[in-house]
Design a protein around this nucleic acid. Sequence first.
DNA 1: TATGAATGAGTCTTCATTCAT
DNA 2: AATGAATGAAGACTCATTCAT
Lengths: 206, 206, 206, 206
Amino acid sequence: MRKKGANGQESRAKLLMIAANEFARSGYHHTKISTIVSRAGLTQPSFYLYFESKEAIFRELVGNFRSGLKELIEGSRLEGGIREDDVPDRLLAVLTSLFEYLGKDPDSTQIGFYISEESAAIKSEMAAMIANNLRAEQQEGYFRAEADMAVISESLVGVIERLTLQELLNGKRPSGDLARHVVNLFMHGICEHPYGRVSGDKFQGV
Amino acid sequence: MRKKGANGQESRAKLLMIAANEFARSGYHHTKISTIVSRAGLTQPSFYLYFESKEAIFRELVGNFRSGLKELIEGSRLEGGIREDDVPDRLLAVLTSLFEYLGKDPDSTQIGFYISEESAAIKSEMAAMIANNLRAEQQEGYFRAEADMAVISESLVGVIERLTLQELLNGKRPSGDLARHVVNLFMHGICEHPYGRVSGDKFQGV
Amino acid sequence: MRKKGANGQESRAKLLMIAANEFARSGYHHTKISTIVSRAGLTQPSFYLYFESKEAIFRELVGNFRSGLKELIEGSRLEGGIREDDVPDRLLAVLTSLFEYLGKDPDSTQIGFYISEESAAIKSEMAAMIANNLRAEQQEGYFRAEADMAVISESLVGVIERLTLQELLNGKRPSGDLARHVVNLFMHGICEHPYGRVSGDKFQGV
Amino acid sequence: MRKKGANGQESRAKLLMIAANEFARSGYHHTKISTIVSRAGLTQPSFYLYFESKEAIFRELVGNFRSGLKELIEGSRLEGGIREDDVPDRLLAVLTSLFEYLGKDPDSTQIGFYISEESAAIKSEMAAMIANNLRAEQQEGYFRAEADMAVISESLVGVIERLTLQELLNGKRPSGDLARHVVNLFMHGICEHPYGRVSGDKFQGV
DNA sequence: TATGAATGAGTCTTCATTCAT
DNA sequence: AATGAATGAAGACTCATTCAT
């Protein structure tokens, strides 16, 4: 006769899930081990059967999110040789899958993007990878040569993190919708009648 | 010769400044009153001479940042009747002063944008105000009629917060530079040769 | 061999007992959690395993005393229909059990009667219950019709609290002894030769 | 030109009065020097111009009450040789002046009787003096020879303190009224038909 | 006579973590 | 696989009191 929850893997997974939820809702410091185990129907010492410390479980959550994100982005470089007309659709596909990733586990996204002290690093890493992708594509002539891809990629990350928080995680808009908005913004801007770009003595064109 | 710190207002201001710095560097919970007062050359009880609690001084800091930001944005609507050609320059001016505000007191910006639990609310408020401004300008024909200003303003806030953190606060680029990049991105996008916009059955154009 | 104090209920009871003693001897403010736990052979956090706060354990102590007292007095109304000659003996029994209650746990009595801010309320409640009992008995003709039972019961409470503190708690006299003194005083007074009662223009007889 | 409140004696008296009020209302520990001086329109250091410490001002208040009380009681022994019939009226007069003393400065009475740690001692002293007076009168045959004046005086003090708190200080009954109730109770008791006194094998008669 | 500014000393309370079973 | 009981370490906050002016 198995004891209730006697399957260690189950308990571990349960703790991980609940911890993610607590961290996402309350932040790292306000989350208490006692709350987590209590929601899991366990006691405090049991927690330490599966995780070394509060920090360890948090790191595991952040790590999972981070590596999944990295993998996704690494696999999304535009293949060379696609027709120029296809660029927007390719971008759209990439961004859609990115938003889908961010939306499928809101607690982890919350943690990785907004709670963790690693958040800044994660987004920087993300921006760097995107910048690489974009530069490669830029070299193939898909984007304006003078565009500063460091700034563009940081901007893109900023847009993504903001829309994720404000539109995606609370269910206001679906991934594809958001992706399309972003593509159109980054492709064409919002200006009615394109005219010259702003510049100045001390500024360089984007 | 005046006693060191014998002026209460000086002590208060000092504590406020040091607290901002500690909160910005270490976050709310890791910041200790003992550290703050020690850096100010005071003792713990003195802190409570000027502030009700740790939370109170934090709130004051956040409040100052928030109201300053609000005031700035509220005063920045494009006046109607300017020539269409001037729109980019006006936007540039607005964004420049915004980045300047965000860059002049990095600790407060850090707190208001990234540390406070109010951060989300602050940015939402900011996005809402910007959306209002943009809509007004949209009605005067400066921007594409079909652009969804809710998404645009959220995106703009995302870009601003990201560039502030990655480029402005660590001194990589000056306010004007960033502002110009943002204007160009939002005006025209990064696309080399404008072609049709992406769309889909279930999506509406931006 | 059981670990010392490994039984939670024992620890709780121990803390409760020691706390009562400390509160009784030193008053609420001078009583330190550190002293209580140290006397119990525990550390401070253990205290919070069993009680929410210093105030909570104090309230529990006061509450226990109060409810026990209430129960005792509520159950002590003289049954109607007893012979008039038996009234003193019945009163004697009631007062004896009251003094016994007050004397069996001196620390709690000290707390409930003299330390707690609720003391006044406790004694008022006690006086009100006694007044009710006395009035019922008065209606059955056991006591003089013109006696003001509000004043009498307050007086009785005053006598009880004073004798408890001065004679009972320090062991000078046993419960029965005190009860008998009180009965005789309230029944007959101390006057050698009963003469007329004092009265005055503006006073009503007791 | 005199500074406001430049008269030291005025400030001192003011502090004393306010302190009495605060101590009476809030107890010793909850009373804060900061509150006292603030109500007096002074600052904290000024307090130490007139009193050595918080404890010192408290002691002064208690001392004043105590010595006034002592003086009053000492002067109230029944002169020998009065007619037996006059005893009640003499007692009445004594008790009336006692209640008047207790009622004229409620804050001080509150402090001396209920707040101070000296309260027990004050009442004991009071009981002892009363016992002396009563014994003297008992020897002159005014009271029953077998009455135990130690218990009687303690009881009397108990009645006085209780009626003072419950009836006098909150204005429910005037001094003379209370005094008369007490005299009648102690002279004759409340029994309708005097019958034998309770006694027991192990008890001695009052 | 009065005060602006500052502090020494002390206590409650919290929480992650562990031990023995 | 799980837990009842216990703790080490740390930080916020309070208040009577004093110094220099």
